[in-house]
């Protein structure tokens, strides 16, 4: 009787180690203007390779098994699939009109904003088939998925809402009216709290996912601050907000939403990604054409890396 669970645990371990690809320790950065993806080595913090992809690459994400990197080629209305090991383009599939930002669900499906159509499309990236379509507000942009996969948040920039979607049936459960031009969101680990940025009102908003109510909102700094991407530290005490034209990453207390520090990075910082251990943050500084690396222990910039023109999105294969 005791052996059985041990065997199944071993089997589970074996099957998991079979499923998960070896991590490459590479940071992938989309360059909107250069039509390329820069590949940065996470140990040397140098660009080791540049991949030519389709026109206007923006959103980027990784499959749950780590075997595939997804990049939207917005002008070509498709998603390009890159092998993180060989850096070859494996295939591509149609992603609806003007695909920009997306997130990958733990079940492997992609939730993508179609800005022109006011909808979120769910796509199975293995087959390229459309699984579902969810009607949302005008100019849908940011997509966030809770780690359990239960909820998805889509921001609609011109309807000023966070749409909280239940993954089980892909229907909207709550709509939260927030500050002008909400751009990105992130869940806490449990998935009951989410944080979002509003670009035009220059705010960070903390919401209760289940009640659909705003818990707190605060300014993200001066009038230059047009916040975009947002990250939560591993211990969930600290928020990191890409300050846009403030040319800095704004470090905030996740409880009080008070600004703790502004870390100067390159110009028009939009994209953010954190290593799995939570120790480093990579930023895309659009106008500067650089990626900045921040040490989260000290909240100091430790490196600036030249990439292509108008770096947009960043994902870490670690």
């Amino acid at each position: 009787m005791k052996i059985f669970p041990a065997i199944s645990a071993t089997l589970l371990f074996l099957s998991m180690s079979n499923v998960f690809a070896d991590v490459t320790g590479r940071v992938f950065v989309t360059n909107e203007r250069s039509n390329t993806v820069s590949v940065i080595n996470i140990d040397t913090l140098e660009v080791e390779s540049t991949i030519n992809v389709g026109e206007r690459p923006r959103g980027i994400g990784i499959s749950p098994d780590g075997n595939e990197i997804y990049v939207t080629a917005s002008e070509e209305n498709k998603i390009i699939v890159i092998d993180p090991e060989s850096l070859e383009i494996i295939r591509s599939f149609s992603a609806g009109s003007d695909p920009e930002t997306f997130a990958v669900h733990p079940n492997g499906n992609i939730y993508i904003s179609n800005e022109d159509d006011g909808k979120t499309t769910v796509i199975n990236p293995k087959t390229g088939e459309k699984v579902a379509e969810i009607r949302v507000g005008l100019e849908p942009e940011g997509v966030a998925i809770s780690s359990s996969g239960e909820y998805i948040i889509v921001t609609s920039e011109s309807t000023n809402m966070l749409h909280i979607i239940r993954a089980a049936d892909n229907t909207i459960e709550n709509n939260i009216l927030v500050g002008a031009r909400p751009r990105a969101a992130i869940f806490n680990q449990v998935g009951n709290i989410a944080f979002a940025t509003a670009e035009i009102s220059g705010e960070v908003i903390k919401v209760n996912v289940e009640s659909g109510k705003i818990i707190k909102q605060a300014s993200s700094g001066d009038s230059n601050s047009k916040p975009k991407d947002i990250l939560l530290s591993k211990d969930e005490s600290t928020l990191y907000v890409a300050g846009g034209r403030a040319n800095s990453v704004i470090v905030m207390d996740a409880d009080t939403l008070e600004i703790i520090k502004k870390v100067p990075v390159g110009k028009r910082v939009w994209g953010l990604a954190m290593t799995k251990d939570g120790n480093m943050i990579f930023t895309t500084d659009g106008v500067s054409g650089t990626v900045s690396v921040i040490d989260t222990q000290t909240n100091e910039k430790i490196k600036t890396i030249d990439v292509g023109e108008f770096p947009w999105g960043v994902a870490i294969h670690d």
């Binding site: 006011g118 507000g137 005008l138 011109s158 309807t159 000023n160 809402m161 909207i172 709509n175 009216l177």
Partner: peptide, 10 residues
């Protein structure tokens, strides 16, 4: 039209 879409959600 845009207000009506917002109104639909709220």
């Amino acid at each position: 039209t845009e207000a009506e879409l917002m109104g639909e959600f709220l």
